[in-house]
Structure formats: structure tokens, C-alpha cells
Design a protein around this nucleic acid. Structure first.
Lengths: 240, 240
DNA sequence: CGGTGTATTGATTTCTTTCAACTAAAGTGG
DNA sequence: CCACTTTAGTTGAAAGAAATCAATACACCG
């Protein structure tokens, strides 16, 4: 069937969605073609630069997003400026907090990214009408909860060295290009952001990176590019 | 209508549930009388002593629970024995991890407690049949996620003194008996457990408690009983 | 080619942990 | 009922890890 025609007659999958990598993600994968078409009519694809704030802490946000490309960090900030990154989200994760309008955290693009923005009202309606969507969002929330608790263990009980190794491991296992054992990736975070994620200072992060480099566990090219010759070796540095 | 008769004819609310404080909680509040009766037939009320493990880390659990009374701690343990408490749950919270059988954490009664145990299969079926139940559990998961992230900020960025104040504040706001401004409560956690929650040692916890006591923010009776003359004062120690 | 932002490295200080002694309450058994 | 042991908590002194302060190196950019 002709795609343009199917679009015209409003049957089948919208063109924009057909080749979308989030088509079968948490949100869109739960929707019927009809819902997908409706959502598509009201959604907006947007490019955001690294550092751009998607949701501000304390603000009322009237939209949700799907991450299409790039990495988004979730941050909590104290009045005196101390900051803690409380989550990292990768494509094609869903970003937003159902049931509560005011955000208790900020969402900011860590890298250049692309997001697909949905009106809050529409998604809220679809959630209430579509048990499968509710189920998938519930499942994602529980996975984020697992991740948050895993990170609590890291923050509370691991040493600086173990913390850095944990973060590198986390990013390595979420980044694409990896061969059998060796893995290479670009850090989506600056040293300052790493420090904010691990609850330490940039100096300590730097020292621990140097330690890992000198002990041969990682190689660093150009500050941001990391090569892990042996992932098992890195894993051993975490002492799970 | 006669209660015994309604039970006999299997209409209306089960007797055991009628006066249950969790009747309108996350799980039971979402169920029809029919579902409530079915759940009631297969559920079991159980007393658990402080220290008793309800779910073991790494095990497959075939049940969920409602906390009826007492406090339950969620812990993650490393092989070398380091431990981190990643959540506290109070009556009438729901305990369990839908969608995944193997538990990545242990649940242990922090105080003497009473729980209502539900078969996992039955609840899973009810979740899939009852959008309202799914919604409520989704909502609870998101609230736990908010709490976990709030705690990540505490673990990563607050000082020892702020950490202890944060915990006392958390417990105070979840414990019942409070007057206008002043609040008194029994700590559901030992010093060792507080340390495991805050990612520090019992000695440091003790020192910080002493500091709060000497500065007049709290009074301590019999180690476990805490009196907070002025909650605003305690809140100021957290430097949100 | 200086200038700016980011990262590394070094010296010193601070905070928390570790090690150790001590106290108080609770349980045990003669 | 009273020694005695056990457990939980507090306090002190010393050691250690990470933060802070300060200087320097490195890339990127106009």
C-alpha cells in the first residue's frame, strides 16, 4: 500500500513513525495506529543542544518527551548550589513524571540530543484509556527505581575509585559500539557532571580516572573518549 | 444487613477487611468486593519480629505483602558485607516488585510488624485485569522513585550532620504522634541501621546525634525515643 | 597567538573512619 | 537478688580519604 495514501486516509502507521527508533519503545509501542496518528499530529520533534534544560526543577511542565538521540541527565539542586545527578536516560527512554505536574528535578541534555515532545494532557488521557501504556510506564518506573537504588548503594557505600569504575561501567553498558570484550565510547558527561553524579569533586574524579588509566584498566583519548580493553577487569574494580 | 450473612453469601466486603486500615490502601482500595473476597481467601496475616527477613536478596519471591503495622527496611548488600538501606516503608505500604521475580534487594522488618501476605500470581492477575490497581501501583512506584532520588541527594551531597537531621525529619514526618510544632517518636532503627541508611559509620551517627542533642534541636530518651521541640529548627539543620 | 574553558596535578586542610576504651542497659544463671 | 556476660551506644585519639586551595597543562576558538 502506498504510504502517502495511507497517511492521507488516516489508516496505518504515520510516516514519521514508521522508521522511528522509538516506534516500539515504551510509549509508542503501546499505541494503536489510530492513537499513534493522533499523537503524531500533536507531537513535535526537537533538537536540543548539550546543556539545554528540558524541564526545570520546581516548574510545572505541560509536556513529556521521548529521547530519540543523546543522553539526558536528571538533576536535583540545593539552594546553596550543591547538585546531584539522580538519573541518566538514554534513547529511547521516556522522560516525564505522570500524576504530578510540578517537577522535583530538572532534566537537561547532557549531549546534543533530539527529543520527541508530547502534550501532557494527551498522554495522560491515553494512559487512562490504554492499560498497556500504563503497564509499560509502570515497568519503566520500576526499572528506574531499581537503577536509583543501585546507585544509592554506590553513593553510600563505595569508595571514590569504585564509584568512578561504576559510572564508566554503567555508561559502557549503555553505549553502543562494543566488541567481544573490549569496549570504546565517548563520555556523555564532563568531569564536573561525573562529580555531580558520584557525589564528589572534579579533582577526585580526575585523580581516580588517572589511577584507572595508570593501572591499565582504561585508556583515555582526548579526555572524553574511553577505551576499556577488558570489561571484566573494569567490573572487578567495582567489587559488586 | 447482617455481616455474618453477607460473608456467607459472598457479597459485600469481607469481615476481615471491613475494619482493616489498608482497606483503602494502594492494593485493596482498587479492588471490587468480589476481588477483595477472592484475595481475602488467599491472603494471610502474619506477625513478624524485628529483624525478620521478609524477602531475601537474590531470591525468587512468590508473594507480595501489605504492611499493616511497623516499619520495613529495604536493603542492598555487597559481597564483602557493606550494606546500604535503600528504602523505608511504613504501613500501609505495599511491598513487592511486579514484573520481576528475582529480588535485587532484601526486605526486613525494622520493628515488630504485621504484614498481610498475598500470592504473587493472584495479584499479578488482578493487576492485568484491573487498570485501577495498575494505576495505583504505578503511582506508588513513582513516589518511591521520588523518595529514592531525594535520598540520592542526601547520600551524595549532604554532610554527616545534615544526613542525620534528614533521617530524623523523614521519620518524624512519617510517625504519628505529633502536636502543633513539637514532635516525639521512637526511632524504628538502631544506630547501625541509621548508619547503613546514611552511608556512614555508627560512630559518626552517634557523634552527630550528640551534636544535635547538645545544640538543643532534639532530646533523646532511652536511646530510641526522640523529642523534637521545634520541627522548623530540625528542618533548618538539613539546609534543603 | 593570546584567551577561555576544561582537566590534571600538587600541597594542605578537613571531615569521616578506624581503632580502642568505656558506659549503660538488659539478659543469664547461680 | 546479685555477680557476670552480652549487646548497644557513646566518647576519645589516631589514621585515612576526600575536599579544598592553588598552580599548571591542554585543547579549542576567535
Amino acid at each position: 500500500m502506498d504510504v502517502a495514501r495511507s497517511e492521507l486516509f488516516e489508516t496505518g502507521t504515520p510516516v514519521a513513525c514508521a522508521s522511528c527508533q522509538a516506534r516500539h519503545g515504551v510509549v509508542c509501542g503501546a499505541l494503536s495506529n489510530g492513537q499513534l496518528r493522533e499523537l503524531n499530529r500533536h507531537s513535535l520533534r526537537r533538537k536540543v543542544e548539550a546543556g539545554c534544560e528540558i524541564i526545570a526543577q520546581g516548574s510545572e511542565s505541560s509536556f513529556y518527551s521521548n529521547i530519540m538521540r543523546g543522553v539526558v541527565k536528571l538533576c536535583k539542586m540545593m539552594q546553596d548550589g550543591r547538585q546531584q545527578i539522580v538519573g541518566l536516560q538514554f534513547a529511547p527512554d521516556f522522560v516525564g513524571r505522570p500524576f504530578v505536574r510540578e517537577s522535583t528535578l530538572s532534566a537537561e541534555a547532557a549531549t546534543d540530543a533530539e527529543i520527541c515532545v508530547f502534550p501532557r494532557n494527551l498522554i495522560d488521557r491515553m494512559i487512562s484509556e490504554t492499560p498497556e501504556l500504563q503497564r509499560r510506564l509502570h515497568d519503566q518506573a520500576l526499572k528506574e527505581l531499581d537503577a536509583a537504588r543501585e546507585w544509592m548503594l554506590t553513593l553510600g557505600r563505595r569508595t571514590a575509585g569504585e564509584k568512578v569504575a561504576s559510572l564508566l561501567y554503567l555508561i559502557a553498558t549503555h553505549a553502543e559500539p562494543q566488541t567481544a570484550t573490549s569496549t570504546a565510547f565517548d563520555l556523555p558527561l564532563s568531569r564536573a557532571e561525573i562529580a555531580d553524579f558520584l557525589g564528589m569533586t572534579i579533582e577526585t574524579v580526575s585523580r581516580q580516572m588517572t589511577r584507572l588509566r595508570k593501572s591499565g584498566v582504561i585508556r583515555i583519548e582526548n579526555f572524553r573518549h574511553i577505551i576499556v580493553p577488558d570489561m571484566d577487569e573494569l567490573e572487578r574494580m567495582i567489587s559488586a
